[in-house]
């Protein structure tokens, strides 16, 4: 009997085991994504862009044409690819800092232009690669290296509601959802719909994946899961927000 866990076909075997920390959610997000790509049969046509932050560690994660870019700039790079070769299926993969802070203008404008690309954003409430600083998605009161006494909403505002923002600025044709690594089946389903939306030429697709960072959260396995499922979901509601394929009344929570 094989002891190697079953990997999606599009994972690059040579780069496994992957480089993410134990307990990190990225591996789970990329498992769901890999399965979605496999099931849609788009490995050869996909172009994967990896941002800076822990997401950059995905640069050789897949047997998929991949470019690792700069912090926040993955959205424009894959936009450029898609505009130049519409036959590709373009995925921009980033963290909350890359998507909601340094690259927010790109996310907003790509969404507003209804670019036929898929943005996947892992939200783990902090800047993990740089050592656990406050991110746009850090929860109120949550301690980080740059909010050692907890995020003060008077000073730092409230956590960015990314999918809700994208939903508000996109019109018909966009697919927007928020999933979580605690429900990989659902997350994979969102990824498939997001990619299908691009393949159908409908418009922009965006999935935020609630993810984990035990290293910077300084949590054990139990507390990590509790934070993801109990704390994060209070602010970040899981579900589909916009789905062009859904019948009337089917979208939303």
């Amino acid at each position: 009997m094989s002891t190697v866990p079953q990997m999606p076909k599009c994972w690059k075997v040579e780069s496994k085991p992957h480089k993410f920390c134990p307990g990190c959610g990225h591996g789970l997000v990329l498992k769901a994504l890999g399965e979605a790509i496999d099931e849609l049969g788009i490995q050869e046509k996909a172009v994967f862009g990896a941002d800076i932050g822990c997401s950059l560690l995905a640069w050789d994660f897949f047997d998929i044409d991949t470019v690792q870019t700069h912090h926040g700039r993955t959205t424009p790079v894959v936009t450029g690819v898609k505009r130049a070769n519409p036959d590709t299926i373009c995925i921009a993969y980033m963290g909350d800092g890359g998507g909601y802070a340094i690259g927010s203008q790109h996310l907003v404008n790509a969404a507003a232009r209804n670019e036929r690309i898929t943005v996947i954003l892992a939200n783990n409430c902090n800047y993990a690669m740089t050592g656990g600083q406050m991110a746009p998605t850090t929860l109120p009161g949550m301690k980080t290296e740059t909010s050692p006494y907890g995020r003060d909403v008077n000073e730092a505002g409230y956590p960015t509601q990314g999918p809700e923002m994208v939903a508000a600025i996109t019109r018909e044709g966009a697919y927007v959802a928020r999933g979580t690594v605690s429900n990989l089946k659902q997350l994979k389903g969102y990824f498939k719909k997001a990619l299908q939306n691009q393949m159908d030429g409908n418009g922009f697709s965006f999935v935020e994946a609630l993810s984990t960072c035990p290293t910077n959260w300084r949590t054990n396995a139990k507390d990590t899961w509790a934070f993801l499922e109990k704390e994060m979901t209070q602010y970040f509601k899981v579900g589909e927000i916009k789905n062009p394929a859904a019948k009337e009344g089917e979208s939303g929570e």
Binding site: P76, V77, G80, A84
Partner: peptide, 21 residues
């Protein structure tokens, strides 16, 4: 493509080149 700023103009240009154009 008219982009949102020159960062985007530069990076989309690189995307276009990567796509073979």
């Amino acid at each position: 493509l008219q982009t949102e700023d020159e960062l985007s103009a530069g990076f989309t240009t690189l995307g276009g080149v990567l796509a073979g154009r």
